[in-house]
Simulated scan of single mutants.
Amino acid sequence: MVIMKSCSGINFEEFYQFLKVIAERRLLLVKKIGPGELQCSEDFGLGLQHTIFDISRIAEVLASVVVNPDFQRVDTSRFLPQPEDLLQQLQEALATTEPL
């Protein structure tokens, strides 16, 4: 993020939309099949471990973006889902996968 911002500036709205698209697609791949149990749809060629890894990286980046002072100045009222809500969804998916 620091390199992107220092080289050309970062458009936080576009960056959030980019993260959101990837996050939502990964969350769609992970399905709860019971308490504490997950199944991954392999229609896209991604296994459960790959999907979990992607979700963890997206959550890490999104957490950094949400606390960034420049991002906090962006009007997020029209973002759906809200960045904090998306981050919570990612963290909940990760919490379910921790035993794996």
Rank of each mutant, 00 (worst) to 15 (best):
D85P: 08
I10F: 03
S6H: 15
E14K: 14
G47I: 05
H50T: 13
D43G: 12
L62R: 02
D54H: 02
S77N: 11
L46E: 06
S41Q: 08
L29E: 04
G47Y: 03
E37I: 08
L87E: 02
S64G: 13
I22K: 13
L48I: 14
L80D: 13
S64T: 05
L62V: 01
E13V: 09
A95K: 08
V61W: 00
S6F: 13
V67R: 11
T96S: 08
V66N: 02
R57S: 08
I10D: 04
A59T: 05
S56L: 04
A95M: 08
F79A: 01
S64M: 07
F12S: 10
I22F: 13
L62K: 00
I22H: 14
I55R: 00
K5P: 01
L27T: 04
F71K: 02
S77D: 08
I33R: 15
D54N: 01
G9K: 04
E14F: 12
A59Y: 00
C7R: 15
L87N: 07
L80G: 09
I55P: 00
E60Q: 05
D54S: 02
Q72L: 11
L27N: 06
K5S: 09
I55D: 01
L86M: 08
L94H: 01
I55N: 01
S56Q: 12
I22Q: 14
V66A: 02
T96W: 09
R25I: 04
P83T: 05
Q39L: 15
A23K: 00
V30Q: 06
R57E: 11
L86N: 02
D54Y: 03
